[in-house]
Nucleic acid binder design. Structure first.
Length: 683
DNA sequence: GTAGGGTTAG
């Protein structure tokens, strides 16, 4: 009866029944303890265990049947704890000492559970020691070892131990194969994984749900969705995890539409096979919606998840926050974040990066500060720091960036590729290439993103020679440049007016490096040709960009070139296209006014200036108009920027003027508001 | 009556 209640998860009822029993033998204790272990309730397990000890003679030997579930409760509580060092290691060590004293460690059950508890509480070395000292090892203890190593990221060690286990004559079961396959999947070792697949297929274990699922994960992570699907279809019964793996494999390979279709199929079959989507499933499919901007469908899923009582699950809420951020609804994202009950480091990182991406630097830092003072006190990780560093980069906030650098070093995160490249980018954008260089010197061998950040940094500082040398060095060490790298390369060419070199790199991108040029790359070269006065070629190059991708940026480049060279006909065409692309902007009128003015066509210039003023507010930070006040003097009128922080506006204006090469700032008021005037030198 | 395995989100 007690066993039945425990098995059906009715822990409270089991406890009442236990308390009502006249005598408590060790079998009853062991049974109830298993219930606490299954519920990851370490406190309850310890309380029960203490009661047993108090009622036993002082030097009575501990029963392995009782001690094992206590360790198990410790292991599962440690595994589900939000905080990695919540003291479970200490509890495990205390119980370990007790187990040694009462000779219970000699039980393979006790020592296996102990090793597992150590490993899950973050004490892998202690777990390995326990394992080495085990008098006898069976398939369960070997599997614990393999899984512990894999979980800690030591996949190759895990696979070595798996081979050792097979060599020692232990017969593997489905648990053992699943553990080995997980190690292969996490390390992306497809050939090794296929070997293990063959081994378990020979025993017919590949259709066991757990094994099939791990196989699907392996193939999905290696990009082979077909094999993943085949593994899932061989399963004896398709469970939630299998569906989730399948959906996730579509998402991971950029096939969000198919992910959503699979989810819909799952719902259709829900009544037949009783596999209902769980929190894992919802977080995956909502992420698919976020990736392709399907806001409406995402909202429906939000409602579905809420109806199933899953919307407050941490991972679901995190996906929802990402969805709303991606769809531009920061307020909705914030609401989901605020309402979620459990917040982990991913929750904080997601909302911080949401504010960061939308340019709300203050809010991002305020949230970071809130996170650090929050009761759950999640430790910042590479994602948190990466987002905050990108905030510093776009605001050129060097001091805050340096503080984050210190924090990264203190937290041992500076060696993460994400942090390193964000630091390089931050130092580069804040004007300190020497600091960027120091960070770059600590790079790992395969860190393409750091190389790219460095190349872009040099390019933006006008250090074209350094940028291009770095690019050649990078290719020399057999690293594959990506599309961002080429933006740096082409920008470098642009800054020194290396037209031929720029054209050569553009040509080599797809032919030699297998990177298809996108509108940004053509835009760089259009700019380069335009500055060199090769307006006709620039116009031709724009023709190579897909029609629906020709945005305001490329037309602005062409128009500016036309204005500088007095190319009225092409200029007019470019201005029309620019107005089509950015109807809210007045840049086209500014450029045309300048063009006409340069030709002495004052009447036409005045007309353009009139149109420009009618447009009113310009989107984005900066100035609306440059009133040429004779000689080289000008006045910019500031019309938009950061409403909440007027101090940033001065920085925005400076960057804007420098970026567009429009002029140098003579004087900017400390606090810029709508309508403030900025005195500047006109180019 | 005791020990080990799979899926997710930035």
């Amino acid at each position: 009866m007690l066993r039945q209640l425990v098995r059906s998860g009715k822990l409270a009822d089991a406890r009442s029944l236990f308390d009502a029993l006249p005598h408590h033998d060790e079998v009853a204790y062991a049974t109830l303890l298993a219930g606490h272990a299954a519920a990851a309730d370490f406190t309850g397990a310890m309380e029960l265990f203490s009661r047993l000890r108090a009622s036993s003679p002082p030097h009575a030997a501990a029963d392995p049947f009782v001690l094992s579930p206590v360790f198990k409760a410790c292991a599962s509580a440690a595994a589900t704890a939000a905080d990695a060092d919540a003291g479970f290691l200490c509890h495990a060590a205390t119980l370990h000492a007790f187990a040694v004293r009462s000779s219970a460690v000699s039980s393979v059950f006790v020592s296996t559970a102990l090793a597992d508890a150590y490993a899950k509480a973050g004490g892998l070395e202690l777990a390995l020691k326990v394992f080495d000292e085990m008098p006898c090892k069976n398939v369960v203890s070997w599997t614990t070892l393999v899984a512990s190593l894999a979980r800690a990221g030591r996949r190759h060690d895990a696979l070595r131990r798996f081979a050792e286990m097979r060599a020692s004559g232990v017969v593997c079961d489905s648990h053992a194969y699943a553990a080995a396959l997980t190690a292969c999947a996490d390390a992306g070792l497809l050939p090794r994984g296929r070997e293990v697949h063959a081994l378990c297929a020979k025993l017919g274990l590949d259709a066991m749900p757990y094994v099939a699922n791990t196989l699907a994960t392996l193939y999905a992570r290696c990009g082979d969705v077909d094999r993943a699907q085949a593994a899932v279809s061989r399963m004896v019964s398709r469970e939630v995890a299998a569906w989730t793996t399948l959906i996730a494999s579509y998402v991971q390979t950029g096939r969000a539409e198919e992910a959503i279709e699979a989810f819909v199929r799952m719902l259709h079959e829900e009544s037949l096979n009783s596999a209902s989507p769980n929190g894992y499933t919802f977080s995956t499919v909502i992420a698919a919606c976020a990736n392709i901007g399907r806001a409406y469908l995402g909202e429906q899923l939000h409602a579905q998840a809420a109806r199933r009582g899953l919307s407050h699950a941490c991972s679901v809420a995190n996906s929802l926050v990402k969805l709303y951020v991606h769809c531009g609804c920061l307020s909705a994202a914030d609401a989901v974040f605020r309402e979620s009950i459990v917040k982990d480091v991913i929750s904080w990182s997601t909302i911080i990066s949401g504010y960061a991406q939308e340019g709300f630097a203050e809010e991002a830092f305020a949230l970071f500060s809130e996170m650090r003072h929050h009761s759950s006190c999640p430790r910042p990780n590479e994602f948190t720091l990466g987002s905050l560093l990108s905030v510093c980069a776009s605001a050129a906030a060097l001091d805050a960036g340096r503080q984050l650098h210190t924090l990264a070093v203190a937290a041992g995160l500076e060696h993460h590729a994400m942090v390193r490249s964000a630091l390089i980018d931050m130092y580069g954008k804040s004007g300190s290439m020497s600091d960027a260089d120091v960070v770059f010197s600590n790079r790992t061998k395969d860190d393409v993103i750091s190389w790219t950040a460095m190349i872009v940094g040099h390019a933006e500082h006008g250090h074209s020679k350094e940028a291009l040398e770095l690019f050649e060095d990078m290719c020399h060490v057999k690293l594959k440049p990506d599309h961002v790298t080429f933006i740096g390369v082409l920008t470098a060419c642009s800054h020194t007016g290396e037209v031929e070199l720029g054209l050569r790199y553009l040509d080599a991108m797809s032919k030699r490096y297998g990177v298809e040029p996108a509108k940004e790359h053509y835009g760089c070269v259009v700019d380069l040709l335009g500055r060199a006065g090769r307006i006709h070629e620039a116009e031709e190059l724009i023709g190579r960009i897909a029609a629906d991708e020709r945005d305001g940026v490329v037309w602005t480049s062409l128009l500016r070139a036309c204005a500088a060279r007095g190319a009225e006909e092409t200029g007019k065409k470019a201005a029309e296209r620019l107005i089509e692309a950015e109807p809210w902007g007045s840049g086209a009128h500014v450029a045309m006014a300048n063009l006409y003015a340069s030709k002495g066509q004052w009447h036409k210039a005045a007309q353009e200036r009139h149109l420009m003023k009618q447009k009113g507010v310009v989107k984005g930070a900066g100035w609306s108009s440059v009133e040429v006040g004779g000689e080289d003097r000008g006045v910019g009128v500031f019309v938009s920027g950061d409403q909440t922080n007027p101090q940033y506006n001065a920085i925005y204006v400076m960057l804007d003027l420098m970026y567009y090469g429009a002029g140098m700032v003579r004087h900017i008021p400390d606090q810029l508001h709508f309508g403030s005037e900025v005195e500047l030198t006109v180019n």
